[in-house]
């Protein structure tokens, strides 16, 4: 069978589908001061999994606000810098109107994912961390 570390080189999704791959990628991103990109990506996926229903509306609102405050609000943060102004306004609007939709972070997640695919992921595959691991 193909060793997991070779699968990680196939696509960003193959890497993010494996716990060891995620851990190694996170170590690399931490060195680059960019671990928030990965945390935000998973936070968006986790948020989308929370089904809207009466019993967890408060939790969803709290979580949406926490994601917004940590990653989007600070314009100097790496996630905020990789997210388009229109996307940030849309999220801010959803929070202000308490319109908490499972897909409200989807566009921001896509923008951050594109940045990882074009930039940090190829750099990771060439990094000492990955090469030493293989």
């Amino acid at each position: 069978p193909t060793p997991p570390y070779l699968k990680w080189a196939e696509s960003l999704h193959s890497l993010l589908d494996d716990q060891d791959g995620i851990n190694l990628f996170r170590t690399f991103l931490k060195q680059e001061d960019s671990a928030d990109l990965l945390d935000f990506w998973f936070a968006c996926s986790g948020f989308r999994k929370l089904e809207p229903c009466d019993s967890n509306e408060e939790k969803r609102l709290k979580l949406a606000k926490a994601i917004y405050r940590k990653y989007i609000l600070d314009n100097n943060g790496i996630v905020s810098r990789q997210t388009k102004p229109a996307t940030k306004s849309f999220i801010k609007d959803c929070i202000m109107k308490q319109h908490i939709d499972p897909a409200m972070f989807d566009q921001a997640q896509t923008e951050v994912q594109s940045m990882m695919e074009d930039n940090t992921y190829p750099l990771f595959l060439k990094s000492d961390i990955y090469l030493e691991y293989t």
Binding site: F42, A43, C44, A66, R69
Partner: peptide, 20 residues
């Protein structure tokens, strides 16, 4: 805001693939 951080960590963990 510790409760924010807890909430975020649990959310991130829920989206991670389960270990084989």
């Amino acid at each position: 805001l510790n409760s924010d951080e807890d909430l975020l960590q649990r959310c991130i963990g829920s989206a991670m693939p389960k270990r084989q």
